[in-house]
Design a protein around this nucleic acid. Structure first.
Lengths: 336, 336
DNA sequence: GTTTTACTTGTAAGCCTTTTCGAAACATGA
DNA sequence: TCATGTTTCGAAAAGGCTTACAAGTAAAAC
């Protein structure tokens, strides 16, 4: 392995100046003769010249890179999100730097710093713990475009908006239509904005029908399978006929917990999730849930962000994405 | 937002040269007076100076970055692997660039190219489709250290080795001890090296006990939940008493398929997986499997790679990691 | 033959750091 | 006073690239 081929080497070999090479290789070479152009391209191949990334970025002040922070890569919801991000990034010739923060505020902060240090052109943050103010503070100061998922960053930001209000409503509607009146909810401590709205939609619709959920039927637990599992006891104590878990992971954990205690789903208790992760179709019983178009979310978020990177002065953009109910097997009509 | 603060600005403000600032900020400033050092640090804070990443890398010829390509981020096995990679990377002050290639060879190639263009210091590749030769070719030529997961790159490479032979043996042992003799296997087309070894271990142990698996009991299907699901018919046609799926995802898909056809697991058919993903403990029935210490694999792979980056001339290192059987609920003694 | 015009290419500055190699400034001992 | 040592610091090169500006040449126009 010898020293790396530089643009200078190539220029020399082609018998032209570095300018010429640079221009031609960057598609700005109309002004050069066909002959020269061909020669340069030819030699690039032969010599295996690849522009030095750092040198290039140094002068261009951009690395065609975006940063992405999600709370938990292990949750299929987020890995699907990432899938969307990667697909669109590729189309747009950007590269996403992806980090899972494990619901850890310190870690999020660390990655945020690191990403900024590395001069990413923009950021997508699906944060759980780090506060919007902190993000705002540090990013605004650096003039880096960003976009928040699951958090409301205010009207001055681009956003891909999921109608969580409606999602909550759909959930309520569904359970209600099956005859459920005694409903428990599992949610995390410090819910993100979208969860708050989601629950509001849920409660609101219930209230319209004269159903209210007592305070103690809201059960706090981490948004993981384990969290759902650990909530089992608390759920059973409330003797509900149905449970609404604010994400699928929790729902799956809960179903496991119920199963172990001999409680049948949906015969004894209906369980409704939220997200619609691929797993839902494989577990027994298949999980009823509210579908979020998560891959599209990833794609749209990326599109919006890259648009912004390329046109800073654009007016804030918003795309709205629909949710819909997916009834499967974990919810059923109540039977007395 | 004003222009970025450069080292020059800081030097000027502190009334010293850029050399001084650079040295002090990089911990090589013992030779400077306490006074100067304090002043520089002080001002860095105040002015919010952050060294320009690209300029720095340009001259240092390293970005403290490694690339990681996995076939599928949606598989918890790989997201756990990533977790290990991220943890160790952080400790070592490296940043991993992570990509999921969706079992797509083109995509893998694209990311590989991109990663090289971006001058990563090293690579971890858990490739499925791209050939070892291709990788070898392109990476060796560029002099970039790398490490293969699930593929045998030869003795000249660092490697974290899982004893797949033993893993296969454990699987065989387990099923045999439960009385199974009629066993089907689900595996992908073009299995990676580790799978080949795994199956060898499996078959070999079986053979020792006089049990052989007929050719047609090896069922080819993609290594996903869907793949497992789609294999259901083929499996049933063989009328096995037990099935060994070479990864958990397939096992889960298969269990779903069996369930839908009224076949009970493990009463009618035992299903054994491989990997031990977190899900195994949540599905019904809990999945028996062969445990791989996947987080550790991620950690060790990263450690090895970074060691190599920092000391090119090190002799090839290998770490061996154990596997062990985790019997849960999806396998049971045969009953006639 | 001189001036335009069109076409083709090159010079050199600048991006921001790190680092090599010295060199001031000052004190010390003779 | 001078040689020597110690402490503290800086000038300038290097790293590979892009680009504003300028320039050279040959053909066309007058």
């Amino acid at each position: 392995m010898t020293r790396k081929v530089t643009i200078r080497d190539l220029a020399e070999a082609a018998g032209v100046s570095v300018t010429t090479v640079s221009q031609i290789l960057n598609g700005k070479g109309e002004r050069f003769s066909m002959d020269t152009r061909a020669r340069v391209h030819q030699l690039q191949e032969e010599m295996g010249y690849v522009p030095d990334f750092n040198a290039r970025n140094l002068i261009m002040r951009s690395a065609q890179t975006i940063g992405v922070i999600v709370p938990n890569l292990g949750n299929p919801f987020f890995s699907m999100f990432i899938k969307g991000v990667q697909a669109t990034s590729r189309e747009r010739h950007f590269i996403p730097l992806i980090f899972g923060a494990n619901y850890d505020e310190d870690l999020e902060g660390y990655y945020l710093q690191e990403l900024i240090k590395r001069a990413v052109d923009g950021l997508i943050i699906a944060s759980s713990s780090i506060t919007v103010e902190a993000i705002d503070n540090i990013l605004k100061k650096n003039g880096i475009p960003y976009l928040l998922i699951d958090q409301n960053g205010g009207p001055s930001l681009d956003s891909v908006r999921i109608n969580d209000q409606r999602g909550g409503q759909l959930a309520a509607e569904h359970l209600l239509s099956l005859g459920h009146r005694k409903i428990a909810v599992i949610l995390p401590e410090d819910p993100t904005d979208n969860l708050v709205v989601r629950l509001e939609g849920f409660k609101h619709y219930l209230a319209q029908t004269g159903v209210t959920i007592p305070e103690e039927a809201f059960i706090i637990s981490p948004m993981t399978k384990l969290g759902g599992y650990q909530a089992t006891e608390a759920v059973l104590k409330r003797e509900p006929t149905a449970v609404f878990a604010v994400n699928d992971e929790m729902a799956l954990g809960l179903i496991r917990g119920l199963h172990e205690r001999g409680v049948r789903v949906p015969e004894d208790i209906s369980v409704l999730g939220y997200d619609d992760i691929d797993l839902d179709d494989y577990v027994v019983p298949k999980l009823s849930t509210v579908h979020q178009p998560v891959v599209t979310m990833g794609e749209q978020a990326t599109t919006l962000l890259i648009n912004r990177i390329q046109k800073r002065q654009l007016a804030p953009q918003t795309v709205e994405l629909p949710v819909e109910l997916r009834q499967r097997e974990s919810t059923a009509a109540i039977r007395k």
